[in-house]
Simulated assay, not measured.
Amino acid sequence: MEIVNVRIDERLVHAQVAAVWASALNATRIIVIDDGAAQDEVQQVALKMACPKSVKLTILAADRAVEKLKEPAYPDDRIFIVMKGIKTLNKITKMGYIFPEVNIGNLNDKEGGIQIRRSVRLSDEQIALILDLHEKGIKFVSQLVPSEDKVNLIDLIKEKV
């Protein structure tokens, strides 16, 4: 099992993730880690429809995802992980699974927050969680599309706050 990218994108699987990212990463499986999506059949159908036919899709709640990642359950797959928000990443980290690098691709605090990049607006709570998770060893980058260079998100946050 090779995890080729971990992305936080509040839209989960959509055209950019499905067509652009999955293809560029040569992903064979997209794993959506989201407690809500794991229990919502309508959302699961929508996610399946958005996923390319050539890529397997797995939708898991955070606790089940940690079990599967620790096994590892998908030994022959190139895995692209997508989560909706920082809280899910924090939950996974508290359960003992730490991703070495996480791409904050599209996250937009609707209540205001601080504009970090064009597609990233973070609340004070999200910033605090990111900084705390960074202290635990997670490298945070921001990269909207694969053709764009990765940007160190921690540096951007420190410039803005």
Results as ranks from 00 to 15, higher is better:
D63L: 10
I30G: 06
T28G: 07
T58D: 07
S23F: 00
E41N: 13
V32M: 05
F80P: 03
I81E: 01
P72R: 05
F80C: 05
R64F: 03
L107P: 04
L47W: 07
K84R: 15
A18F: 03
K70Q: 14
A37I: 10
A65D: 08
G105A: 01
L69Q: 05
V32A: 05
K91C: 08
E41V: 10
R78G: 06
I92R: 09
G85H: 11
L107I: 14
R78T: 08
P75T: 05
L25P: 07
Y97F: 15
Q39N: 13
G96V: 07
K70E: 08
K68Y: 11
Q39F: 00
D77T: 02
P52H: 06
A38Y: 02
V102H: 02
V45N: 04
D76C: 05
D76F: 05
T88G: 10
R78I: 04
P75S: 12
T28N: 05
T93P: 01
W21T: 03
M95N: 08
L47A: 13
I86T: 14
D34S: 13
D40A: 02
T88W: 00
T58A: 11
G36R: 15
I92S: 09
N106Y: 07
L25H: 04
G85R: 09
T93K: 09
K70R: 12
P52M: 07
F80M: 14
